[in-house]
Nucleic acid binder design. Structure first.
Lengths: 353, 353
DNA sequence: CGGTACATTTTGATCGTTCCAATCGCCTAC
DNA sequence: GTAGGCGATTGGAACGATCAAAATGTACCG
């Protein structure tokens, strides 16, 4: 007895099964699947019925192979566990899904070695493009070597080490760090603040440098002094920020306000201030960066710069899709604006009250 | 002039190019790629040199097609933007990457309609398995219909609607919600608390029901009363929790402690308490669930249940990989333990002081 | 009735890889 | 001298889809 009866359990249903099932050729079934106007109404109905009956699922990999296309995009993030990037990823996936692409995820945990490995692995799945938020210290040359020049790359959030800025062969989407920090600083100055510190972040990171530059720009424009001991480094998280709070008050004159590297740092600083008996929003002004969910809910609510990570995710996806449509266009650097959100943590200096 | 010279810009390098480049057959190159012991040392060296020279990248899709295998796993989450799931996703990706799989990401935004669409789309890419944290109200029958029985499914965090619990055809990884809430309640009781509320979450969600059941269990075991107005519903986020705070005090006797649905709710509740002049951790005891990053840093630090989302992610991946190794084994329901973390937000009742 | 236009369908090759069954040298044994 | 064995290599058919070109059938026109 040959095995010709029911479509048995394990094997997957293919075009050929459907074709056999309703006595047409594979090509016709393929045309039906793609909604071609070439097929006769009755045939289409018969085929569609058979597709349903057998529970067919399309094999996009096979189609992509033959058509030399791809329907996936790789998303490689330095820290998916960070809510900012989680939101970003959500936005990316939203937009890609809408355009019929699937997201290949890779998380590098801020290690450039893992980044290499992850990129190499994802490339074997032939993504149409890559969205990369590089790990700290990730080198342009290495990334270029593994990614090659066939797969469009969109860089998000950070520059790569050693890349000549204007002529890098990839698109970039960056936040307007400098302008954001300038806005925050100008806002403090407008409130009457004069002794303003820049608090948190690593000097090495490009985003920290840009934000510091914005701070310097505003201070200089207002003719205010910048004391060296008003720049405090710390890891970009709450715990370290709280611990470093004291450093603001080692030397006189002590600042009465601080522009912080980001919200996590700002919240940590506020915690540290409380512990010293200094009340943020009354005795000391604080601003953050990112507008994470807690910023609106802290006590006092935090003045900060909204970067809309989900919208940035959608934007990144759009930029990459645009590049796929026109691979020849010259690479672009897009700078997403950030928006100053004024809340109670920024206040005039005590003297002015 | 025919175009036979340098490997020109756009076309991708294939096995055939390498084979031609060093005068062997495609089959030999394939053997080299897979590290077969059949090939001669010298040939291997020649081929490997050529691979490097031409910058070959393996096409896993083609290989998967031929071998009828798959090297991807779909990860479908109801809310990637939630830090808990972001951590979970990180753990999943870590473990899958280590096992040579790639993660196909899908975020459903808590909509079961989108969940259907996302599942269908991901299935076309033929994942070896699926890890699904269902959207609220996602129906077992519909999921089963689109996923079919060929692709192993691992359910995380929530049950599907309308699934007969013990004999569902898929594996499950759940948190020990009931025991966790019981531990928290018992802890409050041990501190001398007698009027304990259950605060937050939606009655519909299975995790909320389980946590509430644990609360009830502990209260009854201690012979303590459970007033109906001590169960307050609210959306599982800070804002709504803060807004609902007042509901605890509408009727006498008012509670002096609350077991909260999760950390977000607990933090919101503490905010609400402050606004009413009630100091959490002194006048009123609060516990959470999840142990998110902020829990340790809030004022006061929050007593909660640690669920280790990243470890759960790794575990989910392991469970699915195990299932791929042995597709015939009977489906299992795994319950991950949670751990009580005692911090300053839980205190004895004011009367006892 | 032959020719041509049109609508619909099919054949066979192809994408980049792997598998199977040969094949090719080359050495040894009888 | 030939049969057999062994290491190394290879040709060609798959996998499941698509595409280009050719082949049907049907109708209409002079």
């Amino acid at each position: 007895m040959a095995t010709e009866s029911t479509p048995h359990a394990n094997r997957k249903i293919t075009l050929a099964d459907i074709a056999a099932g309703c006595d047409v050729s594979r090509a016709t079934v393929s045309l039906v699947l793609r909604g071609s106007p070439l097929v006769n109404k009755l045939t289409r109905a018969r085929v569609e019925e058979e597709l349903r009956r057998q529970g067919y699922v399309y094999n996009r990999a096979a189609a992509n192979l033959r058509r030399r296309t791809s329907s996936s995009i790789a998303l490689v993030l330095n820290d998916l566990a960070n809510p900012f990037f989680a939101e970003f990823a959500t936005g990316v996936d939203e937009a890609l899904g809408g355009a019929g692409y699937v997201t290949l995820l890779g998380s590098t945990g801020e290690s450039s070695a893992r980044e290499q490995a992850v990129l190499a692995s994802l490339l074997e799945h032939d993504p149409a493009g890559i969205i990369l938020s590089p790990a700290e210290g990730s080198a342009a040359a290495r990334v270029l070597a593994t990614v090659g020049m066939h797969t469009p790359l969109l860089l998000f959030n950070r520059e790569l080490d050693g890349a000549a800025s204007p002529d890098a062969p990839w698109d970039r989407l960056m936040l307007d760090n400098q302008r954001g920090a300038r806005l925050a600083t100008e806002h403090l100055i407008a409130l009457g603040q004069k002794r303003i510190a820049f608090f948190g972040g690593h000097q090495g990171s490009s985003s920290c440098q840009q934000r510091h530059a914005g701070y310097v720009e505003a201070m200089q424009a207002a003719g205010l002094p910048i004391e060296p001991h008003w720049r405090i480094e710390c890891a970009p998280n709450r715990v370290d920020a709280a611990a470093q709070c004291g450093a603001l008050f080692f030397d006189a004159p002590a600042p009465t306000a601080a522009v912080c590297y980001n919200d996590a740092v700002a919240l940590g600083l506020m915690l540290g201030l409380y512990q010293r008996g200094v009340q943020p929003g009354r005795d000391f002004a604080v601003t953050g960066f990112d507008d994470i969910a807690e910023a609106a809910l802290s006590a006092p609510p935090l003045t900060t710069l909204a970067s809309k990570p989900r919208a940035r995710g959608r934007q990144a996806a759009e930029l990459l899709l645009q590049r796929l449509r026109d691979p020849q266009a010259t690479p672009e650097r897009t700078v997403a604006p950030v928006q100053l959100v004024i809340r109670a943590s920024s206040c005039p200096p005590p003297a002015a009250a």
